[in-house]
């Protein structure tokens, strides 16, 4: 087949809203864009362990500690699902980690904000994971099959993340004045950065059109941001906190909430490395990777030592796994 035939076949698959699978021919630009999208998402999950991981040792009860551990473990798992999906496009996992550490690939700007109080754990579950769910549910229909399947798995697990956060906040709101103030303070600090998670406004998002045509993005940034605001306002009311936006009000004509202008200068500063915690997050990731080097080396040495042994038992192992194979 000529390149034109291959490209036509690719375009037809996209036009029919069918999934692209790993070994299909794809244009270089599609491959590069999807790798960048998945890698950025994977890095966000991995870096996203840090702000909340900060509170594991200081969780107020064994129940809360177990929940937080499980949640942070999920974030690690989500990162792994996504690196696995990126590898189906020919990316190399170690290379992606290098690119994260050296700043050549980005992660979500939200994880560059500090977690100053325990209420932040609840607000991250409620707002940050809530925004992530808004972003991610449509990606379960990404044109790239392995990414879409990873997203289905991730979205199921994110639901626990959001609910544990909201439940935590409801518990604190039933507590002392100091606890209620902590919830309000955390909401004040995370509201605007959560709105920034959807990315720049549509007018300043030049890649959106191509990404939507390829089916790797299903809604624009502003559509998703509006959806998130509409979903969240009643949750804030029920919780009894005030969202820090004086312009936030229901617009009967539009059938949506109006909200104030996002500070895009702050967003740009944080994305380009000047947020409160950028350097700390990357340094910690780099240290964790370096500290794990001896474990990876030891595992390889152990595997090499036992390889001969494994070959001897391979046959009986195979028979144990698939007894039906012994009948032919």
């Amino acid at each position: 087949m000529t390149e034109q035939d291959l490209e036509a076949h690719f375009e037809e698959t996209i036009a029919r809203d069918r999934r692209i699978e790993p070994r299909d021919w794809i244009p270089d630009r599609y491959r590069a864009t999807v790798i960048r999208q998945i890698a950025q998402h994977a890095h966000s999950e991995i870096i996203g362990m840090q702000p909340e991981g900060n509170w594991i040792t200081r969780a107020p009860s064994l129940r809360r500690k177990a929940i937080l551990l499980a949640k942070v473990q999920d974030e690690a798992g989500h990162g792994m699902y996504l690196y696995s999906a990126a590898e189906t496009l020919g990316a190399d996992r170690a290379d992606l980690t290098d690119k994260l550490i050296s700043g050549r690939q980005k992660y979500s700007s939200i994880f560059n904000y500090p977690t100053l109080s325990y209420a932040d754990v609840g607000v991250i579950g409620w707002l940050v994971d809530g925004a992530a769910i808004c972003n991610q549910v449509p990606l379960c229909r990404s044109s790239y099959g392995p990414y879409a399947r990873a997203m289905i798995r991730i979205c199921k697990e994110e639901s626990f993340h959001q609910r544990q956060g909201y439940e935590l906040l409801m518990t604190m709101m039933r507590g002392s004045k100091a606890q209620r103030d902590m919830v309000q303070g955390a909401t004040d600090r995370f509201w605007w950065p959560s709105l920034m998670m959807f990315g720049p406004p549509d007018a300043a998002s030049p890649n959106t059109e191509q990404s939507m045509r390829w089916g790797i993005k299903r809604h624009t940034n502003d559509e998703l941001r509006q959806r998130f605001v509409d979903m969240t306002v009643p949750q804030a009311d029920r919780l009894g906190v005030t969202l820090p936006d004086p312009e936030l009000r229901w617009n009967e004509a539009r059938g949506h909430y109006d909200f104030g202008a996002v500070d895009w200068d702050e967003f740009k500063a944080v994305v380009s490395g000047n947020g409160p915690c950028n350097a700390q997050r990357v340094a910690k990731r780099e240290a964790a990777h370096a500290d794990g080097a001896w474990v990876r080396e030891a595992a390889v040495a152990h595997a090499a030592k036992h390889q001969g042994q494994d070959h001897q038992t391979a046959e009986s192992e195979r028979m144990r796994l698939t007894p039906e194979a012994t009948h032919d």
């Binding site: 699902y81 696995s84 590898e87 392995p146 798995r153 990876r296 595992a299 390889v300 152990h302």
Partner: peptide
């Protein structure tokens, strides 16, 4: 098929697959 992972040997791959 659910995905993939890296491991030093098959036994470690099984354990990681269970955890992941």
């Amino acid at each position: 098929h659910v995905g993939s992972l890296h491991a030093a040997d098959p036994e470690m791959a099984l354990h990681h697959a269970r955890d992941l």
